[in-house]
Write a protein that binds this DNA or RNA. Structure first.
Lengths: 334, 334
DNA sequence: CTGAAAGCGCTAACAC
DNA sequence: GTGTTAGCGCTTTCAG
């Protein structure tokens, strides 16, 4: 590997000067700079990022810890975040949590020794903060920026970027009610998912605000995953119990797709007999039949907010809360 | 940050001994080892991975360069690969190529300075190997293992893990023909995607083997993306031209979903009037209505093959070709 | 079996 | 404006 020393030799200067040319902060005479640049060119020199990181005490990688990258919304987030970080010269480390919290803790413990620039916590789970906070604070102390992506930890001093889950859910439910699709059921993970609960809260609030009441029989908790099969099972079970509902509001697009399948299998017309509303705004939603109405999450905006955190180089600013608006997208299913 | 020196001091030994205990290769007296271990415990010491990487000349990160992480199959791959690498103590760097080749080259150029353990090339594009090979070889020379995930570069000396695209496609088409769904159309990217072309080759071979002929009017090239909208547009265009076909074989599940939507919008019953077959085996495929028949890709198996490459620590073994079998999954759409 | 020393490649102090 | 030196934290000779 060609190093600063080699470049320095070739340019007839000291390694320090090469470094100065590279850094661009300290003044170097135009002539020297030119010679160094030429040597760099000729040797095809590229600074060793590892050495830089060791020297600087921190590297240029940001980790995205996600609950399940196979869920469309997480993949969308990963894509947008990677692109945003890249513009800042940062790399993205991907860590799939697989919905297991102890994996998060282990990873967080490794963050300082990896000299990570930051860790984006993007899991929807209810987290055991008493256990996690010490690890998080240790990471922060050693220079790792911790950012929550999805749930609000600003009270714990963690900058948080959060979708307007309750607002989006409320708008969706209001629409369903206004269209006469009552009663409105809810499918999602409430017990163990903060995000799921926020969407549920919006559902509940909207019901109440519109003079409907919350029927426990219409709230379908799912235990595992947030994928289509869970939506299918929950909806089918309700149908089998002869529960009556005019619409299903699902906490993800995948759940909604599963729900629509259950309705179809039960011989119900969507949206005429049951309407469906998803959450996420995934691109395939426009191509199911019926196409899926949904509360669209603005992944690019969330990624931009992440970019902002890392743009200002110093210690992370105030542990604020950034709320990313959602948008109701009406298609055929509701 | 607590370092080997601090641990050494506390244990009353030299840094070298601490390192030996950590390494586990060299013999250390049981008593000394115990003292060191205790000091490590007490101080909460974790070895600095960056320093290790600098010292060792290479790090513990493997990059996955993917065409588009939002495509379900790529997310599935990322998930399985991450999990497999993690078992080997390796981290996954995610780089979304966004279907632009010059981005690949730039990333490859950075690989050595990042001291990457390896780079998984997982883009379906036709690549300009004359341009790329020098960069790849430079990376290999500096210790970065290059592995192709998706297309066969074994002739170029790059170990390759490839799905049985042609075989899977052939089986799918044979099934369509056997079910009397002729003529069979093909949607996919042929011009610029090696993977798309391999699937097309399987389609073509199967047609020929079954006494059907290849009708250029039934081969729908798509230019941008591999997502549902492309499948929709291509299918709709054919329908508008009054092209007749009994089935559509799509090169991805997303394309198939889009195609089914176009058929539905055109008033065609699936599968009675037109059958659809996807490629990928994504989990939501079981929950579209009609549910999607598909050629399932075995992402876990591909990930395991990746694991094998990095398990043997030394220089990568023979630049072999590993073919991952696909499986025909029959559901409602065909 | 253990310690001392060197050095991976880089940059920030400190001279001059 | 530029060179010299030191040291980030680690592991691996080389001695003992």
């Amino acid at each position: 590997m060609v190093s600063v020393v080699a470049v320095a030799k070739r340019a007839g200067v000291s390694p320090a000067t090469v470094s100065r040319v590279l850094g661009g902060q300290v003044r170097v005479s135009a002539e020297t700079r030119a010679r160094v640049l030429q040597a760099i060119e000729e040797l095809g020199y590229r600074p060793n990022e590892v050495a830089r990181s060791l020297r600087a005490g921190r590297g240029r990688a940001v980790a995205l810890v996600t609950g399940d990258i196979e869920q469309g919304i997480n993949a969308a987030l990963a894509k947008n975040v990677q692109s945003e970080l890249e513009a800042l010269g940062l790399d993205l480390l991907l860590f799939n949590m697989e919905h297991r919290e102890e994996r998060l803790r282990h990873f967080l413990e490794r963050a300082p020794s990896l000299a990570l620039r930051g860790v984006l916590l993007s899991a929807p789970h209810v987290m055991d903060m008493p256990t996690l906070l010490p690890v998080i604070q240790a990471a922060i102390r050693s220079g790792v920026a911790i950012v929550s992506l999805g749930q609000d930890f600003s009270a714990e001093g963690i900058p948080s970027i959060v979708n307007d889950n309750a607002g989006g859910a409320a708008a969706a439910v209001a629409h369903l009610i206004a269209s006469g699709r009552t009663p409105v059921a809810f499918v999602g993970r409430i017990e163990t998912s903060v995000v799921g609960r926020a969407r549920f809260d919006g559902y509940r609030a909207s019901l109440l605000a519109n003079g409907e009441d919350v029927d426990a029989g219409l709230v379908w908790e799912i235990s595992e995953g947030y994928r289509a099969d869970a939506g299918y099972q929950a909806t089918r079970a309700a149908l089998k119990r002869n529960v009556h509902f005019g619409a299903v509001f699902a906490a993800s697009d995948e759940l909604a797709l599963g729900g629509m399948a259950a309705a179809a299998d039960h011989g119900l017309a969507v949206p005429d007999e049951v309407a469906f509303m998803g959450f996420g705004g995934l691109s395939w939603g426009a191509f199911s039949r019926p196409s899926l109405s949904t509360v669209a999450i603005d992944a690019p905006a969330a990624a931009r907010a992440v970019g902002e955190v890392f743009k200002a180089d110093g210690p992370p600013g105030a542990a604020g809360l950034t709320i990313i608006p959602t948008k109701l997208v009406l298609r055929q299913s509701a």
